[in-house]
Design a protein around this nucleic acid. Sequence first.
RNA 1: UGGGCGGUCGCCAAGCGGUAAGGCCCCGGACUUUGGAUCCGGUAUCGAAGGUUCGAAUCCUUCCCGCCCAGCCA
Length: 566
Amino acid sequence: MATPTEGTPSHFIRNIVIEDLQQNKNASRVHTRFPPEPNGYLHIGHAKSICLNFGLAGEFGGLCNLRFDDTNPSKEDVEYVESIKEDVRWLGFDWGDREYFASDYFAQLYQFAIQLIKAGKAYVCDLNADQIREYRGTLTEPGKNSPYRERSVEENLDLFERMKVGEFPDGARTLRAKIDMASPNLNMRDPVMYRILHATHHRTGDEWCVYPTYDFAHGQSDSIEGITHSICTLEFEDHRPLYDWFLEQLNIHHPQQIEFARLNLTFTALSKRKLLQLVQQGHVGGWDDPRMPTLAGFRRRGYTPEAIRTFCERIGVAKRNSTVDIAMLEHCLREDLNKRAPRVMAVLRPLKVVIDNYPEGQIEELDAVNNPEDPSMGTRKVSFSREIYIEQDDFREEPPKGFFRLSPGHEVRLRYAYIVKCTGVVKDSQTGEIKEIHCTYDPETKSGSSQSSRKVKATIHWLSAAHAVSAEVRLYDQLFIKEDPDDAPQGLDWTANLNSHSLERLTDCRVEPFLTNAKAGERYQFERLGYFCVDSVDSSPGYMVFNRAVTLRDTWAKVERSGRRR
RNA sequence: UGGGCGGUCGCCAAGCGGUAAGGCCCCGGACUUUGGAUCCGGUAUCGAAGGUUCGAAUCCUUCCCGCCCAGCCA
């Protein structure tokens, strides 16, 4: 028997699995499944479920199936099937040859239904949707039996067969389980098992005119696949008695359904309905817009699968409704990229600096460290010359208290180069806008030289004006201005909380020339700025486009912000 | 007012009768050629009230608050 992995944070579901294993339940087998409906792209909430299901199977020597819950042809599409497979694979999980579809079981499910009809446990009901609702009763009042509840087995069989071949229009009849119209659990008040839908299914085409509901399809699919632990979210807790009922009546393998709380994130919408709306109404560029909480969006943004997996492990699994701080996710990304991303210098908003005492025409090739966290990543050369660009933010004509960067009369270190002192500012005579600044450098302070140990308060990044390459950089902020997107002013809906500044395109940036060879999806740390990723859609060797995945922690920005508040 | 499930630090989350883990955020400080990283240090008595017990976040009772369910969606 597989033993628990040391150091893996435990949670109640993992504990159940461990206990089952100890008691030799299911012949010590662990078999889970990830069951997405192919009606949208996978998002970070699904990642929690994927990591849970594949993680448990992986840890205990079990298996996890990928099963598409495709019982509603009117909402589903192959585009989603393909994206889901790509995203699960990208996250780092492998379902081997166990790629299943609920629609693979339509014939079997149909036989199960007939079995229940024959046992007097299911009947064809002629009530329409409105009538079924009326007969169902309310939360506090019991329902009434359908007038069609006592049809003979023969009639039920005949009717169900005719439903299947398409003799009746959509909605004309349903097949219902005969349970208890007075049950305090509404799901047990003769739930619908099959509905008539003359729709073309993305896999079975027009073969079927009836489709099983989730309740009738899910548990039986789990059973057919030999699933041991059927993990789902909290809203299905009320369905568990029904899940169990079908399996018991059918007397087939009975997986255990276990529910956990779905993920919520601050400043993020995670319902499929909302995400679909964001895409369809053009609030974002598509399912893979880097601002989207979809796996495709995170991937394009520059997130690593490792960071997302670590995040899913750290947030834990429990039954309490909760909303995780988005800062937790960002932290996981920084932590991962800090170790792996090569550093490089980039200037997002260039400000020209002329070093007056540096020889005109002279170029020095300076050594720059690729990753101080990992010496094995080596060094590279950066060109230094008389005219350079620095970040506009790194110069203040009138520095506020605590500003350590460049200002008139003050010194800063140019990373990997020299200490320079600001000697003058050139402004546009009309607008007063700063056009360029002048400095002198101290030749004794070259990085790495014996005299280089002089201390200055700050080090800033820079790029040689003649060597730097132009690029576009896209800065992203939260898609919503409110921690809870649903917290909208009265009368307005969640779209009122959309952040109109969630995307900022900077088209006059400079980067180190070797970045021209960077490939789509590669991630770099732009020193002092954040982690950036080569955009996989719009970037090309002739026109580089970088997405900011996440900023670096910025204590100066924090100080400035709190200063402004005072 | 029916049923189901929850309520432990600002946000997640361990704990399962023996005297409150950890992570994120935040605040100090050390170090630093990224105001990055790293390293130290700081912050809860467990929804409330009773009760059982030598001892309770953990057991019992009552109460309060939150979420889910009246799709032929999943």
